[in-house]
Design a binder for these strands. Structure first.
Ligand SMILES: [Mn+2]
Ligand SMILES: [Mn+2]
Ligand SMILES: [Mn+2]
Ligand SMILES: [Mn+2]
Lengths: 238, 238
DNA sequence: ACCAGAAGTTAGGCAAGGCTAACTTTCTGC
DNA sequence: GCAGAAAGTTAGCCTTGCCTAACTTCTGGT
């Protein structure tokens, strides 16, 4: 046996206070964070329920519990806002999620349209130690396979400087930075067209009434429907 | 889009019928499997309760539910035995567990005394697809970091041909095949002595009344307590 | 053969989360 | 400014697991 102290479990990875919250609370916190975006409007019960696929009644009950746990402030009938503690919890889960997605893609070769579903489960079940081992293995990465920023170990996250592709004028463009990871079909479609985060993209033409948007990506032209273009984010110019 | 069929989700990894059971059922099935060993005595409620750290009352209730789900046969007051379905479920979890342990150790460099705890959680949360990616990455391995055999994809498991080190006579020995993974302290101790699965081991002397066992491992002598020796398994000779 | 203690089960609770149905509050269009 | 619609909440119920306390069954020693 070495001279190492007995039963002192390393004590390293203790940046965040290791609050143990139920998986439910973690999912709600993440959903609220993502719905809150940056406009600091409170988030409605219905929006949370929709995103999590539960009834408004279930969400209402759960939000009250989150309020008791100091994860949200709840004004009945008006909505919820994350407390700083709730935001930390959300960011912790987002860090787990994105690290896992990248790890699955990079280390295990899982296709980028399938990593999301797996990460959605695993994010709640990895230890802080495993989180750290994954981050180290990946070289403390800044972005996940869909271009989304990964919060730092201290849970700082880069603020979003992108605009939706659907909001660009003809002639506008930039780097295709990120895309929603929640629709595998969509990801496979983009992949099959060779459209991936990091590519330069430019709007060539737009049709009115939500018509397709013609873009060029690395030389090729594509006509993208508005729902798709809404989920693709491009670096803000200027 | 390629000519690949739409929405047919690959259909590969479907060897086992993908029964979804609650995490509780998975843990109970695994516990019963491991208590059952090979002596096909039925397993008592108390033994299950002990191993899972719940009260006998809780185990009793749960065993009844497992019986309803056809995972065990339950004779009240006499004990339970796994059904074939229950055994498949147990082996599935054991495969997950041991693949995850090896993966964490080999790919992420997690020390062998810490992989068990992490695997204990993750085994319930990886998809069949991820299981397969891990197995492939590791080259369809046969043993985990503690020397325990990993069930095949078809859930066949090699039967145990080892004896406890504590049961060997002086002069007996063989290959140190495997060691219980449930006590991190013990694993660290063995590791610090350079005693690892695969090493040749021989009993040099024994003291009566559960006294220490003197063994030689790759040239060095060690005195091991009986509780430790009971958890170390050595290849059966002859 | 009996009976005490060990082992197992039942009864009654609790906490998380989900549901539906019914009720309340807020918002909106006239 | 008010009615009806939309949004949110409450009430009552369910499932999964766990608990303690009380009861039942089994077993081993005399
Ligand atoms: Mn994702
Ligand atoms: Mn963390
Ligand atoms: Mn499997
Ligand atoms: Mn293990």
């Amino acid at each position: 046996m070495t001279a190492a102290p007995e039963s002192v479990p390393d004590a390293a990875h203790k940046a965040h206070p290791e609050r143990r919250h139920a998986e439910g609370a973690e999912n709600y916190a993440k959903a609220i964070y993502q719905l809150q975006a940056d406009d600091d409007e409170p988030v409605g019960t219905g929006a949370v329920a929709d995103r999590l696929g539960v009834t408004p009644a279930s969400a209402s009950a759960m939000l009250k519990r989150l309020a008791d746990d100091n994860l949200v402030e709840h004004s009945p009938y008006r909505g919820v806002r994350l407390t700083p503690e709730g935001e930390q919890l959300a960011l912790e889960m987002i860090r787990h999620h994105r690290l896992i997605e990248l790890f699955l893609a990079e280390v295990l070769g899982m296709p980028w349209d399938r990593v999301h579903e797996e990460a959605e489960v695993l994010e709640h079940h990895i230890s802080e130690e495993l989180e750290e081992l994954i981050a180290t293995k990946l070289g403390q990465p800044a972005r996940d396979p869909h271009g989304d920023p990964i919060p730092s170990r201290e849970l700082d996250i880069e603020d979003d400087r992108t605009v939706a592709l659907s909001d660009l004028e003809v002639g506008g463009g930039g780097v295709f930075e990120r895309v929603s990871d929640r629709d595998p079909e969509m990801l496979r479609y983009l992949d099959s067209r060779g459209i991936r985060p990091g590519a330069a993209i430019e709007v060539r033409a737009r049709d009115p009434f939500e018509g397709p948007i013609r873009v060029s990506v690395s030389g090729d032209e594509h006509a993208l429907g508005t729902p798709l273009a809404r989920r693709m984010r491009v670096s803000a110019e200027r």
